[in-house]
């Protein structure tokens, strides 16, 4: 890959990094990352991956932009209210960096389409707002051997881990989605907008580290933070032999669409 004068200029701060350099930037520029959800987490993830020049960014989200999203979903602007999120996000990415090819899927990720959608990508980022799809992403990635970054935020807290084939997966830690009635309802579950940026940028950094091979990923670890006290904690994780998807006797051998909390279904746009 031969970078143009403009590209050398655009990516100069990556090229200067000893661990990245021209070769690392080439790997970023030929990398393909799927971002599931173009919302609170997906916004900073997609923005930073676009700025970094990731060759192909896939965006999957079935929602349209709502006014209540703008407090944290920074890739969408006031004028985008009512527009499909994947279109709104693609427009910003194109403006930020025309080098990036954006593939949009205006749909929900489901047990039916998950494997087909993720198969063309090097790395998947979970930027979803609900447990059923988080488990679906985990299972699809474990079953097909695809690296991914899990991320979740609620109120003032966030957590993330990075999965590589053979490493502990999300289900090793959390066996199954909580029952729908145990998940906070929309009226209980606010979120401080800025923590979407805190967690999403960690996920973007993990994707770029994966593409370039730099450093150590959050693999075999669960990183969590609480923005009220601004404390971060990383705990080591282990594979569970009883894991329903990657354990000795897996019970999850095909993908499952779990039931969503009623509030999630009736009020998807507000989440």
């Amino acid at each position: 890959m031969n970078f143009t004068e403009d590209q050398v200029n655009r990516y100069s701060r990556h090229i200067l990094l000893q661990d990245v350099g021209v070769e690392g930037q080439e790997r970023i520029s030929s990398g393909k990352v799927l971002v599931v959800g173009a919302g609170g987490l997906g916004s900073p993830v997609a923005f930073y991956l676009a700025a970094a020049g990731v060759g192909t960014i896939g965006l999957i989200d079935g929602d349209v932009v709502d006014l209540s999203n703008l407090q944290r979903q920074i890739i969408h602007f006031t004028a985008d209210v009512g527009k499909p999120k994947v279109i709104s996000a693609k427009e910003k990415i194109n403006q930020l960096n025309p080098d990036v090819e954006v593939v949009t899927y205006q749909a929900l990720l489901t047990a039916e389409n998950a494997q087909e959608v993720i198969k063309d990508y090097d790395f998947v980022v979970d930027g979803t707002d609900n447990f059923p799809v988080k488990f679906l992403i985990n299972d699809a990635c474990v079953i097909t051997g695809k690296p991914f970054s899990h991320g979740g935020i609620l109120r003032f807290e966030g957590q993330t881990l990075t999965y590589l084939p053979g490493a502990p997966c999300y289900r090793c830690l959390f066996h199954a989605p909580p029952p729908p009635n145990a998940v906070p309802t929309c009226s209980q579950a606010g979120v401080l907008g800025a923590i979407a940026g805190m967690l999403g940028t960690i996920q973007a950094a993990e994707a770029l580290k994966y593409l370039t091979g730099v450093g150590e990923l959050l693999t075999g670890k669960l990183l969590s933070f609480n923005a009220k006290t601004m404390t971060f904690r990383a705990i080591n994780t282990k594979r569970s032999e009883h894991c329903p998807v990657c354990g000795k006797n897996p019970t999850v051998t095909k993908l499952i669409d779990y039931e969503q909390a009623v509030c999630d279904i009736s009020d998807r746009r507000k989440t």
Partner: peptide, 13 residues
Amino acid sequence: CPMTFVKTKIELN
């Protein structure tokens, strides 16, 4: 700066 070294680094590589 820093393009002086960016350009140098690219050629050094």
